[in-house]
Design a binder for these strands. Structure first.
Length: 365
RNA sequence: GCUGGAAUCGUGUAGCGGCAAUCACAGGAGACUGUAAAUCUCCCGCCUUCGGGCUUCGUAGGUUCGAGUCCUACUUCCAGCA
């Protein structure tokens, strides 16, 4: 049994796991204030090194006493390394040294290497950093293997640089910051195992599992990886959590934290979670629906407003539509993981999973 | 009353003799997983066995192989002059 409950201790507080980490890419959760995030029970957020390097620059965040303080969040934070941008941005040139991007803002050329990513992340000052990794450019085994091997070489460089920076920062009396190595290998189980073994042998404080895009094959993959990764260190599933299914599978297979842009992105686009699956609140059928979106939901939207009202706000394109929808989706996912945590503690996980997923995906196929 | 101008999908428009006819908005639906996402895609005259078929550009005539486009009359609106 890989599933577990636990705590991740950081200088900004404790994260009770499993936990869903909100996406605060550019040092904010889109459409939400951190007060709203605290109210809906969010324990931690994840920002993006690439975006913060471009704007406002890592120096500024350091000047602002680090990410959590700069944002006014004060709770635990993660940063992604910028590795994902190599994969998702056009016009990226990758070499063994690192990756050259063109800034999507002004076209300025910008270099990211394992060392620079570590330096940037220490300056940003999140509690937990991701190693600079590379995702494969295709599904082919060759590409996967190449990306994985480079990720490993880069991880070694990250670890070296991280040790230097840690010493330097701690000497100045600054708080501890932790590094996660990232497991790659795509859908190939043997590569995943190889990657997990490599990462497990590195001097890192935890692990990110990257390059996962669908729930398909996730059970076997996570089982293989998490059996190898040391039990006492936390595991973060990078980018997964849009589908509630991902959260249940992840937790069941030993994942401690998740992050995903899905809940807030979908909220902004009018796609809302309900216990019976996702619903597009802009659909005409909600025009006269004066019931709460989710009966019994404790979020600000469901406690105070009707489906018809939210439908109206979306139709007239009011900012509040995105705010309320984001509060709801984020709360929905945070609460689902909270309940997963509770059910694991009480030994009722299997029942909760079956009940939740059976209802949520009932209308699919 | 006179003189000009205009009438095209729910709305605002393109169209200057040759494929139901541009674009935007509105409307309908879908997508979204380490955020270049307040984004993107599709449908939007009627019918369709998805090959296509049918009826359309204020109304009624006319010219032409062919008319939303040219001509005549009418209707309605707009501007200017009385």
């Amino acid at each position: 049994m890989l599933a577990r409950v636990g705590e991740i201790k950081t200088p900004h507080g404790v994260i009770k796991t499993p936990a869903f980490v909100g996406a605060a890419t550019r040092a904010t959760v889109k459409a939400l204030t951190f007060e709203q995030m605290r109210t809906l029970g969010s324990q931690a957020v994840l920002a993006n090194t690439y975006h913060l390097v471009l704007r406002p620059g890592t120096e500024l965040i350091r000047e602002g006493r680090g990410l959590a303080e700069f944002m006014g969040w004060q709770r635990p934070t993660f940063t992604d390394s910028g590795g994902f941008q190599i994969f998702s941005l056009p016009n990226v040139r990758i070499t063994e040294d690192g990756a050259k991007f063109k800034s999507h803002i002004d076209g300025r050329e910008f270099l990211m290497t394992p060392e620079l990513s570590m330096q940037a992340q220490w300056q940003i000052g999140a509690d937990i950093h991701m190693a600079f990794d590379q995702l494969a450019k295709s599904e082919s085994r060759d590409d996967m293997e190449r990306a994985m091997e480079r990720t490993h070489r880069w991880l070694s460089r990250c670890v070296v640089e991280n040790a230097k920076l840690r010493e330097e920062y701690l000497k100045q009396g600054l708080p501890e910051q932790y590094l996660y190595g990232v497991v790659q290998g795509g859908t190939f189980l043997d590569l995943r195992k190889q990657s997990a073994e490599f990462c497990a042998g590195q001097e890192v404080d935890g692990f990110g599992i990257g390059g996962v895009f669908t729930a398909e094959g996730m059970v076997e993959m996570l089982e293989a990886v998490n059996t190898i990764l040391p039990e006492e260190k936390p595991r973060h599933l990078l980018g997964m959590g849009q589908e509630p299914r991902d959260l249940f599978i992840g937790a069941e297979e030993g994942i401690d934290t998740f992050d995903c842009v899905g809940p807030t992105r979908m909220a902004r686009n009018g796609s809302l979670y309900t216990l019976d699956g996702r619903v597009n609140i802009k659909n005409a059928r909600f025009t006269h629906d004066f019931t709460p979106l989710v009966e019994g939901c404790d979020c600000e939207l469901c406690q105070n407003y009707t489906r018809a009202y939210l439908h109206h706000l979306f139709k007239v394109d009011e900012i509040t539509a995105k705010v309320l929808a984001s509060i709801h989706n984020e709360r929905f996912v945070v609460r689902t993981v909270e309940k997963i945590r509770e059910s694991l503690s009480k030994g009722t996980f299997a029942e909760y999973k079956e009940e939740f997923l059976g209802r949520y995906y009932k209308n699919c196929q």
